[in-house]
Write a protein that binds this DNA or RNA. Structure first.
Length: 293
DNA sequence: CCTATAGCCTGGACGC
DNA sequence: TGCGTCCAGGCTATAG
């Protein structure tokens, strides 16, 4: 489900409820998500206060008062939400007639101004996971990540270096979290369209042999930034089940220029092309063959 | 080193 | 209505 804009939307929704709140109780409704919950996970959270709610790429990072880091990844269908009203109502999301089938985690917290709140995690496909790291512990998830696409590192020179010698399609390289961290299938499709680059184009053809950006590459950094900024401003995209911390959907899906628009007319002014869909490494790519080269 | 593929899991959409 | 098939926002392990 969630790419960088959706995770950032969740982070912004959770922060005012969690920052400063003390974790009073943790309930795990099953032993694992994609991976097992860490040994002693609940005990490592209980009694600590959430100091910061941060994000790195698609990871949510809860900084705890003992210096430890609680990490969560939403996978494809994971969602966090808070409830400060109906404390005994487990969920209004992912609830079926059986009750709480896809709610896997709940935490009761005490916030100095808001009182008692409950944080839930639900995830029908269970591709998400949580982890816990002590202070200064190496973090195998974060340590391998490339730079944030919204930070200062992303520019044409950086992409030129990253694409140098790569004979994979540019789409695949942009999805590699070790190159740039936080992009997923939707926003790569959108950014490549804005930049006028075909997803199947071989990455190294956008750079010289020494890693200098070629002219066709120059628009890509700004396109990535613009697409992500717009999506965050719209509260992310909701295709099936994405919801923010208040249970509200995002709206950026109404602004897609190519994603899931196979056969429809390209929305770039005066282009007139028809959007195509191809499959690259098992993932759908949507693009306009007329204005993306 | 790099690249490509299968697999994890459930639910919704679609065709018959 | 029911059943089978395909597809889905991410990431990892493994093979080549």
């Amino acid at each position: 489900m969630p790419e960088l804009p959706e995770v950032e939307t969740v982070r912004r929704g959770l922060a005012p409820f969690l920052e400063g709140a003390r974790i009073e109780n943790v309930t795990l409704y099953r032993p694992d998500l994609r991976f097992p919950f860490p040994e002693g996970f609940a005990d490592a959270l209980i009694g600590r206060t959430v100091v910061t709610v941060g994000r790195r790429a698609k990871y949510l990072l809860f900084g705890l008062s003992d210096g430890a880091l609680w990490l969560a990844h939403l996978g494809m269908t994971g969602a966090f939400w808070v409830d400060d009203t109906a404390l005994d109502e487990p969920s209004r999301l992912f609830k079926n007639e059986a009750g709480v089938k896809h709610v896997h985690f709940a935490a009761r917290l005490a916030h100095p101004e808001r009182g008692t709140i409950t944080l839930y995690y639900g995830d029908p496909r269970r591709f998400g996971f949580m982890a816990h790291f002590g202070p200064d512990a190496p973090n195998p998830y974060l340590d391998i990540l490339g730079p944030e696409p919204l930070g200062n590192t992303l520019n044409a020179d950086f992409l030129g270096q990253a694409f140098m010698g790569r004979k994979s399609p540019v789409k695949s390289v942009l999805l590699d979290q070790r190159v740039i961290a936080g992009l997923g299938n939707i926003y790569v499709c959108e950014a490549l369209h804005v930049a006028g680059i075909a997803p199947a184009r071989i990455a190294r053809t956008l750079a010289t042999k020494t890693g200098r950006p070629r002219p066709a590459l120059l628009a890509l950094p700004g396109a990535i930034r613009m697409v992500l900024d717009s999506a965050i401003a719209a509260g992310g995209s909701t295709l099936r089940d994405f919801r923010n911390a208040d249970g509200q959907p995002g709206y950026f899906q109404h602004s897609f220029l190519v994603y899931d628009r196979e056969g429809q007319t390209c929305l770039k002014p005066a282009c007139g092309g028809a959007i195509s869909r191809i499959v690259q490494s098992g993932r759908s790519s949507f693009f306009c063959p007329v204005c993306q080269r």
